[in-house]
Simulated scan of single mutants.
Amino acid sequence: MVFLIPNSRYYFTGINVFMMTFPILLAFSRLRIRQRPWLGKLASLTFGIYLCHFFFVFVTYDIFDIKGVAPIVRLLLMAATSIVASGALTWLMRQWRPTRCLVA
């Protein structure tokens, strides 16, 4: 079984990820932000980003497997690269009519 292999990258699906993201979700849900056009466009991409970000997390895990880089730096690089790549892919899919329904 893949989930029992030590040091496996599949630990991204564990309870630790939930415990880190849930308080952030609660904090951001309390924020009151004025409506802006660019923010609305970004919000319309979030479902597509959610659907494809996991692929990019695994890819960036391998890309940023660099000796001597601090884990926090590696994690921030992975997060930034994954969100930008997922957003770009989702935006491209929304521009093409056959894939628009998949990310809308």
Rank of each mutant, 00 (worst) to 15 (best):
K67T: 07
T90Q: 03
P6F: 03
L25R: 08
N16C: 04
A79R: 03
F64P: 01
P23F: 02
S8Y: 10
G40W: 03
L39G: 06
F22G: 02
S8W: 11
V69Q: 12
A85R: 01
R97L: 05
W38D: 03
F28V: 13
R32N: 12
L4C: 07
S86A: 15
R32H: 10
L45H: 00
R94I: 03
G48A: 08
I83E: 00
L77D: 01
R74S: 15
L89S: 03
F58Y: 12
N7W: 10
I66A: 10
Y10E: 07
G68L: 04
I72V: 09
W38C: 04
D65T: 09
P71L: 04
L31M: 14
I5Y: 12
F56T: 00
R74N: 14
K41S: 06
L25E: 06
A104S: 12
V84P: 05
A88L: 15
W96T: 04
I49L: 06
I49H: 00
L42I: 11
V57R: 00
A85V: 05
F47K: 08
F58V: 02
F3I: 08
C101K: 15
S29G: 05
F18W: 07
V103I: 08
F54D: 12
G48W: 00
S29V: 02
T13A: 09
C52Y: 01
L77E: 03
V73R: 11
G40N: 11
Y50M: 05
D65Y: 06
V17R: 11
I33A: 03
I49K: 00
P71E: 10
A85N: 02
P98V: 06
F47M: 11
L77M: 13
I15T: 14
L42C: 10
P6V: 08
F54Y: 13
I24L: 11
L42W: 15
P71V: 05
V73Q: 11
I5M: 12
V73F: 13
M78D: 01
R9W: 04
L51Q: 08
F55T: 13
T60Q: 12
C101N: 14
F3A: 06
